[in-house]
Design a binder for these strands. Structure first.
Length: 958
RNA sequence: GCGAGGGUAGCCAAGCUCGGUCAAAGGCGACAGACUCAAGAUCUGUUCUCGAAGGAGUCCCCCGGUUCAAAUCCGGGCCCUCGCACCA
């Protein structure tokens, strides 16, 4: 029987489909299991790595199904945002990142031409995910519940959620500063650069603007990240070759660079850009610093970049190497000094002022570091390093010194905020946000930080919500364990989160203000619940129009009377009742599985929205986080288009091979590099198993033997182990036992001479069942030959029966196999080709002594052991007793619980070996003699009998 | 910076929560034997060092500590990865 993966995959997937085994209906009194994986965003083709989490989910629900649970495992897609829009645009302009990838995935020209429409993109990829990925991988999901976040009915659900958040007091409004394209509005800045064409790693920096008074009433405005250094100011830097502008801000006139004025306009009300202000004209004059009121000179510096901050810089030479070196250079620059009239006296007045006590440094760290690194020029590349070093240590470990007025003695980190707030109160400072590097929109325009005055937030800082969520998280089944612990910190760290956005996005209009679209994380928090409802929409029993607030209030919160809601929505009462019942049956969600990127994003809000809006009995019960399958050399980005298309990989390796790869290659909680060879080796493994299974099925003798009981016992032990693993959702250990350990049992059975067709088939059936969660197609193919219809997928796995009998059957075989190891070791070391092997089991007194030692609760009484043995043992053995007693005592003291219970099992060693005699003779190709070590008739010319220990018979070979 | 997770034999990777069953599962690779005309596949065995008797020695990034006993617990160090919010 050759194995054609593709055809058996199609065969069984069709069969499951026809039998509708995947559809989930409530069954009263049957335990339910409701699991989802976090639905993927619709942004293009996926990579083979993405199938890991999905496959593990399917394995878990299949196992649950086979252990008596009624399983709900629905799938959907997340289409909110601009992924589909940007994809459609890329198709439109023929961008290879979209078009070539589509072609490589076998997309026809006709389809391609439709994909300039974002909604077509969503429709297209919904179909790809569903058919080419999830169905192709044999998932046993209830397809009839499929939903996507931009479906009109899903939007009704999100509207309801936002209304509920609002009613619960969890929606707040406040100003927000967000990156936006001057043309297209808000954009997302992230490494995948879906919205932007440049600057994916930019961050929004929070500057403080300090206003310095000029004698003419204007303000020179400097932007700084370190407002607390205002105490160490010595001078101001202006770039003589930059054209500054006078900008009217409220009632004040600010001098800033032109680009800065443009940015300010986006962040403040009433900014008017006036006439130019020559930078050079200011140099040599002085200005008055905020807070300290100190008058400082204005010096020239070519380093002020008009595109960074305000294009003006305040100078703190004590703690900023750039400022220090700037002063040093200026002192030497006769030309500039002459031109701007900078006297020695002015330079002397700009001597560094110590303001921060930095551990490991003297009073003036900038000077110290510059000197140590040998920095003498502003062109020196080491300057940046020097700045970083001083900045880092000073900010995190420094303490403000006595020059800092009332802030003396404060930690710099705290002083920063306090000094800033003081100046903000006084009106001598303002806040300003800017990007750390240039960012360009996909349209080519600049992206700048824009103030959104009335941004809506979900209030995840709400103390009661936070507390209840943290408490509930402790009771949840969260894997890995580290995340169970850490989610407490994550929840603590959570604050308000923007939940709606302006701009051109796919998504649900915000019901409280329809200019806004509900943001992509906010519309994906409660959604497991929606799979209860989506089935009825998909079946045409209800429709989006009627799905109003009263409808969701009724079916999800139990509010209102059925008849009222029926008349208000136009849905019939039976349907409403059925949805409500189904919700009560399936909810809460048992497991939500998602990638590690969700740990600080989706999982916390998923949890908090449930806690905030639903009744406690409906709060989620479990979360599993999966790490990634990566390409060698880094994570494979879905948005950048994938390497090999998933259906091609399925064809090439076989779905079950890939499923086994995902399940077994490593713990779910580590990243693993994808390698074709590894997947191939799993395919080879399955082919070998298939050969083994075929041989086992072809076996047609029926000769009962001692091995039958062993195989049955072994099977029970395996069952117990794998059941334990799956209770922990440890799919990897499960797969290891099923695919790598269990085959050994069958091989051993045959090798030892087991020969019962019926026993083999009985064991094979259980083994096949255990294969089903991970390699369902192969399992069905085997099952069909073993047991015929219906499916192994819908059969029930028996509970393990671990009795004493099981333990002793296994102990018998353990005796034989360790003995074989010992003999092999001896043969290896001595290089003897044996003509005869003599085995001598431990005498009774040794067994008695060991069991006595094992059963003694506390410290082993060596003397007692010796005394008892002296009385019981034959005279000739007496000399051995003390040494053996010592060894037994030592071993016993060291033995773990498992060892103790294992040694406690009684084995009649001579009888067990008698049964294995023929086998051993065959294995070693010579005669085997058996004795008890105290049998006077034993053949023991070298006196090996003394070596005999319980379960380790003495060996003599010749 | 803040937060999290890691470093295990030639390679991949379990074990670490609960110290002793650990020279450390499993896989891959390599080597040997069986089968075969042969190759491949398959099966069996070996794969840190030493050993003509089933044993001994040294080992789980480095240093130190706790303990009768440490891959596992504690302290310190070096190196690597990931997340940090409107991005799904």
């Amino acid at each position: 029987m050759a194995l054609d993966f593709s055809s058996i995959e199609a065969k069984w997937q069709n069969a499951w489909d026809r039998a509708r085994v995947n559809e989930a209906e409530p069954v009263p009194d049957k335990p339910k299991f409701f699991m989802i994986f976090a639905y993927p965003g619709v942004t293009g083709y996926m990579h083979v790595g993405h199938m890991r989490g999905y496959t593990v989910s399917d394995a878990i629900v299949r196992y649950k199904r086979m252990t008596g649970h009624n399983v709900l495992f629905p799938v959907g897609t997340h289409a909110t945002g601009n992924g589909a829009i940007s994809f459609a645009r890329r198709v439109e302009r023929g961008d290879p990142s979209a078009v070539e990838v589509l072609r490589a995935n076998g997309c026809s020209d006709e389809t391609l031409s439709k994909l300039t429409d974002p909604l077509e993109v969503v429709r297209f990829f919904n179909q790809v995910y569903l058919n080419d990925y999830w169905k192709r991988f044999g998932f046993m999901s209830d397809w009839s519940r499929f939903t996507s976040t931009i479906n009109p009915d899903y939007s009704r659900f999100i509207e309801w959620q936002m209304l509920k958040l609002s009613a619960a007091g969890l929606l707040i409004q406040k100003p927000y500063y967000a990156p936006a394209c001057v043309e297209h509005g808000p954009v997302a800045i992230d490494a995948s650069e879906t919205d932007i064409s440049k600057g994916g790693s930019a961050e929004v920096l929070e500057y403080t603007l300090l206003k310095f008074d000029l004698p003419d009433g204007r303000k020179l405005v400097a932007a700084t990240l370190r407002p607390e250094t205002v105490f160490g100011l010595t001078n101001f830097w202006v770039n003589p070759s930059v054209e500054y502008v006078n900008a009217k801000v409220g009632t004040e006139t600010w001098v800033v660079s032109l680009p800065a004025a443009d940015k300010l306009r986006l962040q403040m009300d009433s900014v008017e850009v006036g006439e130019g202000a020559e930078g050079a004209a200011l140099i040599g004059r002085s200005c008055v610093a905020p807070l300290t009121g100190k008058s400082i000179p204005i010096f020239p510096s070519e380093l002020c970049d008009p595109d960074v901050g305000t294009g003006l810089v305040m100078s703190v030479p004590s703690d900023a190497p750039v400022d220090w070196i700037g002063l040093v250079e200026l002192r030497k620059d006769e030309g500039a000094r002459k031109r701007f009239g900078i006297t020695d006296g002015m330079l002397d007045s700009a001597a560094p002022i110590a303001i921060i006590d930095t551990p490991g440094y003297g009073p003036l760290p900038a000077l110290e570091v510059s000197e140590r690194m040998g920095v003498t020029s502003l062109e020196d590349p080491k300057l940046e390093e020097a700045t970083k070093e001083v900045y880092k240590t000073g900010f995190h470990k420094g303490v403000m010194n006595d020059s800092c007025g009332e802030f003396a003695g404060w930690q710099v980190e705290r002083a920063k905020d306090a000094v800033r707030d003081r100046m903000l109160e006084q009106g001598t400072a303002s806040m300003f946000y800017d990007l750390s590097e240039e960012v360009l929109c996909r349209c080519g325009q600049k992206v700048l930080v824009k103030k959104i005055p009335d941004q809506w937030f979900i209030d995840y800082a709400n103390p009661s919500l936070k507390e209840r969520s943290k408490e509930h998280a402790l009771t949840m089944n969260i894997l890995p364990r580290e995340y169970h612990d850490n989610i407490q910190n994550v929840l603590e760290w959570y604050r308000e989160r923007a939940c709606v956005r302006l701009g051109n996005w796919l998504g649900t209009r915000f019901p409280l203000d329809t200019r806004w679209i509900v943001e992509a994380i906010a519309d994906s928090t409660l959604y497991p619940i929606y799979y209860i409802v989506s089935k009825y929409v998909n079946a045409g029993r209800i429709s989006a129009e009627g799905m109003n607030e009263a409808f969701f209030d009724h079916v999800l919160l139990g509010k209102g009377s059925c008849s009222d809601v029926a008349s208000e929505t136009g849905f019939d009462e039976a349907t409403l009742l059925s949805i409500q019942e189904e919700f009560d049956y399936w909810y809460p969600l048992d497991i939500n599985l998602g990638g590690k990127e969700h740990m600080t994003v989706h999982f916390p809000v998923f949890l908090m929205n449930h806690v905030g809006l639903l009744r406690p009995q409906h709060w989620p019960r479990g979360i599993i986080v999966n790490w990634y399958i990566t390409a060698i050399g880094g994570k494979i980005s879905k948005s950048k288009g994938g390497a090999q298309p998933i259906p091609d990989a399925a064809e090439r390796f076989g779905v079950d091979s890939m499923r086994l790869f995902y399940a077994h290659i490593a713990s779910l909680y580590v990243d693993v590099a994808w390698e074709d060879e590894k997947v191939e080796s799993y395919r080879d493994r399955l082919e070998r198993l298939w050969t083994l299974v075929s041989d086992l099925m072809a076996f047609d003798e029926e000769r009962p033997s001692d091995l039958d009981a062993w195989l049955r016992a072994r099977l029970q032990t395996r069952l117990g182990r794998v059941q334990g693993h799956m209770e922990q959702y440890d799919v990897r250990s499960y797969a290891n036992d099923v695919y790598f350990e269990m085959p050994q049992d069958f091989r051993w059975y045959l090798r030892r001479g087991g020969a019962s067709r019926s026993v083999l088939r009985e064991a094979l059936k259980v083994w096949t069942q255990l294969m089903t969660p991970v390699t369902p197609h192969l399992a069905e193919e085997i099952w069909e030959r073993l047991d015929g219809p219906p499916f192994v997928s819908t059969s029930l796995i028996q509970r393990a029966d671990e009795t004493q009998e099981v333990a002793s059957e296994e102990a018998n075989e353990r005796l034989v196999s360790t003995l074989m190891d010992d003999i092999a070791e001896i043969l290896k070391v001595t290089e003897i080709r044996p003509s005869r092997i003599v085995l001598m089991t431990a005498p009774r007194w040794k067994r008695d002594m060991q069991s006595k030692a094992l059963s003694s609760a506390g410290e082993v009484d060596i003397g007692g052991l010796i005394k008892d043995a002296m009385a019981a043992a034959p005279a000739e053995a007496r000399k051995e007793i003390p040494a053996f007693a010592k060894a037994v005592a030592l071993e016993t003291r060291r033995a773990s619980e498992d060892e103790r219970s294992r040694s406690a099992v009684y084995v009649d060693e001579l009888a067990a070996l008698q049964r294995a005699k023929a086998f051993l003779e065959k294995e070693f190709g010579c005669e085997v003699l058996l004795f008890s070590a105290d049998d006077p008739a034993r053949v023991d010319p070298k006196g090996r009998a003394k070596q005999a220990r319980p379960m380790r018979p003495a060996v003599f070979v010749e």
